[in-house]
């Protein structure tokens, strides 16, 4: 039996069904990321696990125990909130040791645990300050420290980095990854940022409209998306997807795979842009984005959306230039009319 198990979990708010039947198994020590567009139910699912919302139907079990109807305080979980939710009237030390104090842990042990966590998080010099005397990044670390000190069964993170600026977000992301490696604690992390999902997760759970679209390792999702939604949600810039009939040059390939009336997808790195006259597809440059390490070339090939190419070499092309385009046949993804992936026969 898995460490954390969700069985047919349903959540309704009044007449609205937010979570429409989720089955999920999480192993001990795994780093799981819930990702999806806003309103997909990822935060609600996390709150159901935390016990902050009640489950309408289905069950949740943790470490062999049914916790479906257990109050939050008895679930032995720790959560890091987007707003940090630090106790404004307590010092950093008191914030971090509060759960231990409630559990009536000996003060000496409390101090030792807080000191250890503070050291890991570089908070040793701030223990006597109150949250309002800290920067955003420090507050975030206190919130994480508060979770670490308790050594809970599962860490829950609810979009913990969205209030930080870009540089700090990247830095904290690395810290969280390191922390998970050293503590090995089971973690569930909610984010709408796919970079966080790809870099942190052992497995990613992609949600849409209260249902799981796919569960898999980050590269599984990238290389073998289960459907068009996952294919386009994971990866930046997103996968190019065109109806099979729009580009006859590659559309014939779709026919051989049973996607003649479906869609063809190709990631930007599978698209090559050449000078005019070369390449199977004729097109025109719409926009060039030079990011330094990468160059993105948006080309108009007569499809409703531009075909985006990503290359590591820089380019002298400008908007309006005529180009020839090749698509790497091995990098193509095929989807049927409903958007489900069609796998090559192995």
């Amino acid at each position: 039996m898995s460490f954390l198990q969700l069985k047919k979990v349903i959540k309704e708010f009044g007449p609205v069904r937010t979570i429409k039947g989720v089955d999920l198994e999480i192993e001990r020590g795994e780093f799981i990321v819930f990702v999806g567009p806003s309103g997909c139910g990822k935060s609600t699912l996390l709150r159901l696990i935390a016990g902050l919302e009640s489950v309408t139907n289905g069950s949740i079990s943790l470490d062999g125990r049914d916790i479906t109807n257990l109050p939050s305080s008895k679930r032995d979980l720790a959560m890091v909130f987007q707003s940090y939710a630090l106790y404004p009237h307590m010092t950093v030390f008191d914030n971090m040791s509060f759960a231990l104090k409630l559990a009536k842990v000996d003060p000496a042990v409390r101090k030792e645990k807080v000191d250890r966590a503070a050291k890991i998080l570089n908070l040793t010099n701030y223990l006597e300050r109150t949250p309002k005397e800290l920067s955003g990044g420090q507050r975030q670390r206190v919130a994480i420290g508060r979770a670490i000190v308790r050594a809970p069964k599962v860490f829950l993170f609810d979009e913990p980095l969205s209030n930080l600026d870009a540089a700090l977000r990247g830095q904290t992301r690395v810290e969280i990854a390191n922390l998970h490696r050293s503590l090995g604690a089971t973690t569930i992390y909610v984010t709408h940022d796919q970079i966080e999902a790809m870099t942190l997760a052992d497995r990613v759970v992609v949600l849409r409209d209260g249902l799981i679209e796919q569960v898999g390792t980050p590269l599984e999702l990238y290389d073998r998306p289960a459907n068009q939604f996952v294919a386009q949600f994971i990866g930046m810039p997103q996968m190019n997807v065109v109806a099979a009939g729009v580009l006859p040059e590659i559309g014939r390939l779709a026919g051989t795979r049973g996607a003649a009336d479906g869609f063809i997808g190709v990631r930007p790195e599978g698209v090559r842009v050449h000078g005019p006259g070369n390449g199977a597809i004729k097109g025109k440059v719409e926009l060039v984005e030079s990011l330094g390490s990468d160059t993105l070339i948006y080309t108009n090939v007569g499809a409703p959306n531009p075909l985006v190419a990503r290359q590591s070499e820089r380019t002298t092309l400008h908007a309006g230039d005529a180009v020839g385009i090749d698509v790497d046949a091995a990098a193509l993804h095929f989807f049927d009319k409903q958007g489900r992936a069609i796998r090559a026969a192995a």
Binding site: A50, G51, L52, P71, S72, S73, K74, R75, L77, A78, M79, F81, S83, A85, L86, Y87, P88, F98, A99, L102, A103, R146, R150
Partner: peptide
């Protein structure tokens, strides 16, 4: 803020705490 109450509950607090 509701978040603070939820944080307290997750920290193991009963209604009185």
């Amino acid at each position: 803020p509701n978040d603070i109450l939820e944080a307290v509950r997750l920290d193991g607090a009963n209604v009185w705490d």
